[in-house]
């Protein structure tokens, strides 16, 4: 090492380094103290799966059509159902195995009845694997406080290309209304039809 200019510029650089770390010392810490503070989750983030209920009657929106179970790529959804006296499917049990679920959201897309939804909730650690399988009641309770906008239902009659464009705008609500009411017992579809 020589006593010449490199030493001086080196000292200058050392001081610059000290200044940088000092600025960091007094800047705001980025730590989020997790259990007491939480990141606000985005509205459409895909966390745990819940079953949605009718806000007025409190019944499940699910019609046991099995579309979600068929859409599920990892077979995490298990549904048991039977024919009721009115020839409609009645749901016996509905369970989601969260240890298999890949949170892809395909079940939500497949559902025609606003019955299943992925929510921003994510804190569901357990100590054993079996308790990651949620039964119908747990899924329903989890979904109680989940806000959702009922989608505009496309009925089979509106499936012609010319009609679909107008259904989206709500123009075909009058002819559709009786049909939707008869086909599905959910009132979310009626809300959707009038919206």
């Amino acid at each position: 090492m020589a006593y010449d200019l490199p030493v001086l510029s080196g000292i200058k650089n050392l001081l610059i380094g000290l200044w940088v770390t000092l600025r960091h010392l007094f800047s705001h810490a980025v730590t989020l103290q997790y259990p007491t503070e939480r990141w606000p989750m985005p509205e459409r983030s895909r966390g745990v799966v819940v079953l949605l209920s009718n806000k007025e009657t409190g019944d499940l929106n699910c019609t046991a059509c099995m579309l979600c179970a068929k859409a599920c790529p990892c077979a995490a959804i298990m549904i048991e159902r039977h024919r009721g006296d009115d020839k409609k499917w009645k749901i016996d049990s509905f369970s989601v195995d969260n240890s298999i679920c890949c949170y892809c959201g395909l079940c939500e897309e497949a559902c025609n009845f606003d019955a299943i939804k992925l929510t921003p909730k994510y804190e569901f650690s357990t100590y054993d694997k079996p308790s990651l399988t949620y039964d119908m009641h747990r899924l329903q309770e989890l979904g109680r406080d989940v806000a959702y906008t009922p989608r505009v239902r496309k009925t089979p009659a509106a499936a012609t290309p010319a009609m679909t464009a107008t259904t989206e705008a709500g123009g075909a609500s009058t002819p559709m209304a009786p049909r939707t009411a008869t086909e599905t017992p959910t009132n979310s579809s009626e809300k959707g039809g009038s919206a």
Partner: peptide, 13 residues
Amino acid sequence: KLSGHFQQRLGPM
């Protein structure tokens, strides 16, 4: 604490 704040962490809390 100082090490934490130098790295924009909080240190023990």
